[in-house]
């Protein structure tokens, strides 16, 4: 009788273990799926961040281009008392002379 009970208890344990195994497997599967979805959202959020930063870079490029526009630079230079050289004040020497006069 005890042996049967023991046999019955063993079977029960195997059954419970199998059930637990199935439940655990399902939980892992669900967990993995949830993690994938969560990572996908995270990836999406990172892509959003990337797009935002790209947009920021674009705006900064525009700003830099506006700040270095010749008209603006000329106005700033004039404020500082600078002016364009008159014709003939700047000359480019031929390479032969430029090399010969180099110390």
């Amino acid at each position: 009788m005890n042996a049967r009970l023991r046999r019955g208890g063993y079977g029960m344990r195997v059954l419970l273990a199998a059930v637990l195994g199935v439940v655990l497997g399902a939980a892992i599967l669900v967990g993995v799926r949830t993690e994938i979805t969560s990572l996908r959202y995270e990836l999406h959020s990172l892509r959003d961040d990337e797009a935002r930063l790209r947009s920021e870079v674009e705006k900064l490029r525009v700003e830099a281009a506006v700040l270095t526009a010749p008209e603006r630079l000329e106005a700033r230079a004039r404020e500082l008392g600078l002016s364009y050289p008159r014709p003939g004040q700047v000359v480019s020497l031929p390479p032969s002379i430029a090399t010969a006069t180099r110390p």
Binding site: E58, R61, A65
Partner: peptide
Amino acid sequence: TLLAVSANV
């Protein structure tokens, strides 16, 4: 030198 450039606004 940039003559025309695009950005999101």
